[in-house]
Simulated assay, not measured.
Amino acid sequence: MTEHMNKQAAQLPAFRPVRPSARLAVGGLLLAGAAWGVRAAWEFRLFLAGEPASGPPDQGEGVHRPLNALENSYHAVSSLAGGAVVVCGLLFVSWLWLLRDNARALSGQPPRYLGIWVILGWFFPIVSFWFPRGIVVDAFRAGEPGRKVPLSVEVWWGLWLIGMVSGVGIVARDTTDELIARAYTEVWPLLASDAAVIGAAVAGVFAVLAVSRSQEARIRAARAVPSAGAVGTPAPA
Rank of each mutant, 00 (worst) to 15 (best):
V118G: 10
L159I: 02
G33F: 08
M1K: 03
Q8C: 04
G108P: 01
L24C: 09
H64V: 11
E3R: 14
G146K: 02
V85I: 12
A32G: 09
E71L: 03
P234E: 00
A53S: 10
L190N: 01
K7R: 13
S214D: 13
R16F: 08
A172K: 10
A105R: 12
V93P: 05
L98Q: 15
P226E: 00
V127K: 02
A34P: 03
A53M: 08
V168D: 11
P17K: 05
I116R: 08
R213T: 10
E51M: 15
E71P: 04
V63Y: 13
R65D: 11
R45Q: 12
F140N: 05
I135Y: 02
P20K: 03
P52D: 06
W42F: 14
W157M: 01
F140W: 12
A210Y: 06
S78H: 15
R173N: 11
G229H: 00
G158T: 03
I162V: 15
V202A: 15
E71A: 02
S214W: 03
G146H: 01
L70E: 07
V38F: 11
A142G: 03
R65G: 08
A81E: 04
R104N: 08
R16W: 06
L209K: 14
V225T: 14
I219F: 02
L120P: 09
W160Q: 04
V87G: 07
A49Y: 08
L67T: 10
A217P: 01
A103D: 12
S94Q: 11
F92T: 10
G115F: 10
H75P: 01
W95C: 01
G232M: 03
Y74S: 06
R223Y: 01
A49W: 06
A203C: 11
I162N: 01
P13M: 05
V165C: 07
R141L: 04
A103M: 02
G204R: 08
V165L: 14
V18I: 15
I198M: 10
A183P: 00
M1F: 08
V197Q: 09
L190Y: 02
A224T: 00
A235F: 03
I162H: 01
G89I: 03
S107L: 03
V63C: 00
P145Q: 04
V137E: 13
R133P: 00
V208A: 07
P13W: 03
R23K: 13
W117I: 00
I170F: 12
N68S: 09
V187L: 04
P56R: 06
G229V: 00
T2Q: 12
R133C: 01
A139H: 07
E216V: 08
G28V: 00
V26D: 04
